[in-house]
């Protein structure tokens, strides 16, 4: 999961079309099918089984299955990351973890189609949730779209990260600083890294043909991260709630294009 070369690879129109086909499947999964599926009483493993079946029915491959850790020791055992409440990202789905009323679940999906990757995520609320949790989810979604609006050829990466930080801090929440977005294309994690905080007008220039996966991660308190013993799940050090949204976005001659949205 390391970024090896500091070269910005630009994608042609045909390659972006292939990513879009994969992105349509991901958006159907997240925004149509899992809405009805996620209820209190189900286990996180059932979400994983459902989504893997759906992806394979279109002859596509789930991207996260078998990926190695930074150390090279563990490999991710499932096709979808499911993280509940505390957990920020990379939660491993289990049989004994059951959802109940008032939980927040974030599902992260990755798909491979003809050698090209795509990445999307969304947080759901299980049953009736607190006002603060509802507000968290809405604010992260808002910040994602505010960051995507700044993706024009000629702007820099700092503009995106500044926009995300401003909307989040306007509403009284905090950005998680140790986790970043990334480029995407022929491999899952590519150059450049897109942090969720920073100054505007700073960083690499965006050109038509860049494809980025922007993922704002927001929490209620100003806390750090902590990795659990399975060497995958990342948790807030406080125990406070966190939300996570992600889209893959491409820059074309006409402007930005969200590839993982219907």
């Amino acid at each position: 999961m390391s970024i090896k070369k500091c070269i910005l690879k630009l994608k042609t129109r045909d390659e972006i079309k292939k990513i879009k086909i994969a992105g349509k499947v991901a958006s159907d999964l997240l925004y149509d099918k899992l809405d009805c599926f996620i209820k209190p009483g189900i286990s996180t493993k059932s979400i994983d089984n459902f989504s893997e079946k759906y992806i394979r029915s279109f002859n596509m491959i789930p991207a996260f299955l078998g990926i190695k850790n930074i150390d090279g020791s563990n490999s991710f055992p499932a096709s979808v990351c499911v993280s509940v409440n505390d957990e920020i990202v990379h939660g491993i789905p289990n049989d004994y973890k059951i959802l109940k009323y008032g939980d927040i679940v974030s599902v992260d999906v990755g798909i491979i189609y003809k050698g090209y990757y795509c990445d999307a995520a969304r947080t759901y609320s299980v049953g009736k949730v607190d006002c603060i949790a509802k507000k968290l989810i809405n604010v992260t979604e808002l910040s994602l779209y505010d960051g995507i609006c700044k993706m024009l050829s000629g702007n820099k990466i700092g503009d995106i990260s500044n926009a995300i930080q401003k909307t989040v801090e306007k509403h009284g929440f905090f950005v998680i600083k140790d986790l970043v977005g990334h480029g995407i294309g022929k491999s899952l994690h590519e150059y450049p890294q897109v942090p969720n905080y920073g100054k505007s007008g700073v960083g690499i220039e965006l050109l038509s043909g860049t494809v980025l996966a922007i993922e704002p991660m927001v929490s209620i308190s100003d806390c750090g991260i902590f990795m659990l013993n399975d060497l995958w799940t990342i948790v807030t050090s406080d125990g406070s709630l966190s939300a996570h949204f992600e889209h893959t976005v491409a820059i074309t001659d006409n402007g930005y294009e969200i590839l993982t949205k219907v």
């Binding site: 140790d178 970043v180 990342i234």
Partner: peptide, 8 residues
């Protein structure tokens, strides 16, 4: 994704 130079 984890940031590159967190612990520098």
């Amino acid at each position: 994704m984890l940031k590159k130079n967190r612990f520098k």
